[in-house]
């Protein structure tokens, strides 16, 4: 019985996974399709013709044309790719520089108004971009940062979400370890640097991965704050793709997926650890 139940569960999970994986399969098979094939399938959606869009799992005449075209003939793609990368790493760096000490302070020090600050962080974290867009725009405009990458980077650097995550990790470090360090004659900075960061590394990496994914996929902020097209990140490339460049669109999607995937895979261990730690704590 158990075995049968197990099999059913596996089948169910497989089906769910297939559904979840479908967009990726869609994109991957699309990269190898020729332009005419893509147009035939997607015309009802993108071309405005009658009927329903169809899709084939395997291309009729597989080709690397779209990929070559994207990589060889589209310098624009690379401009945007490097823009995206620049934004993401700047944001991550900023978050690391400012978020880690903040989270440490909130987690390990007690001072008046600490609870109020935490409350404010949570409220701000819950607020969507649409709410913050207007004040941010006004402030950026006032300090003359509109239409620069700083306009995207700075608000993200001071995002509350990584602080909140790292706050949890730092809070989970046992007080006894810190006391032992203090007894050994370690100062506050040494405790933070020698004990806090190594013990909270999982949290830092987790927040970093999450932060990367968020900034990599960021679309509203550049759209709102960047006017110069040459500053646009890759997330704004795909909206410009029409039916005629559908193949290139698929190729671009795949290329965009790869860094996120690589980052995730390389930080997977920490991420799982960190999430588990967060879960265990409560």
């Amino acid at each position: 019985m158990k075995k049968i139940t197990k099999i059913f569960i596996y089948i169910w999970l497989f089906l769910l996974a297939a559904v979840i994986c479908f967009p990726v399969v869609f994109a991957v098979s699309g990269v190898f399709m020729q332009q005419w094939e893509l147009e035939e399938y997607l015309a009802p959606v993108l071309g405005g013709t009658e009927g329903m869009a169809r899709w084939a799992a395997l291309p009729h005449a597989p080709t690397l044309q779209s990929l070559v075209e994207l990589l060889m003939d589209s310098p624009q793609f690379f401009v945007m790719f490097w823009n995206s990368l620049k934004l993401s790493f700047c944001i991550l760096a900023g978050q690391t520089i400012f978020g880690v000490p903040t989270a440490w302070a909130l987690a390990r020090f007690s001072f008046p108004g600490k609870r109020a600050i935490l409350m404010l962080y949570i409220v701000l974290m819950l607020m969507p971009f649409q709410v913050l867009m207007m004040p941010e725009y006004l402030v950026l405009n006032q300090i003359g940062l509109l239409d620069t990458h700083a306009a995207v980077i700075l608000p993200a650097v001071f995002s509350t979400f990584p602080v909140f995550i790292m706050y949890r990790f730092f809070g989970g470090i046992p007080e006894a370890i810190l006391e032992a360090a203090r007894i050994d004659g370690a100062g506050n900075f040494q405790i933070f640097w020698r004990i806090g960061i190594p013990l909270g590394a999982a949290g830092i990496v987790s927040s970093g991965i999450l932060g990367f994914l968020e900034s990599w996929n960021m679309i509203e902020q550049p759209m709102t704050f960047l006017k110069t097209r040459s500053l646009w990140p890759l997330s704004l490339f795909l909206p410009e793709i029409g039916l005629k460049e559908a193949g290139m669109g698929f190729a671009a999607a795949i290329m965009m997926l790869i860094p996120a995937l690589l980052i995730f895979l390389s930080g997977q261990e920490y991420l799982e650890q960190g999430i588990a730690a967060a879960a265990l704590k409560e």
């Binding site: 990589l71 060889m72 003939d73 310098p75 790719f81 390389s266």
Partner: peptide, 23 residues
Amino acid sequence: MKATAVFFVFMLCFTILSRAADQ
């Protein structure tokens, strides 16, 4: 980490190539 580095090198090459082709 290695794969990521390789990927970025790869992308850098294509960036240069595509720009050259574009010009």
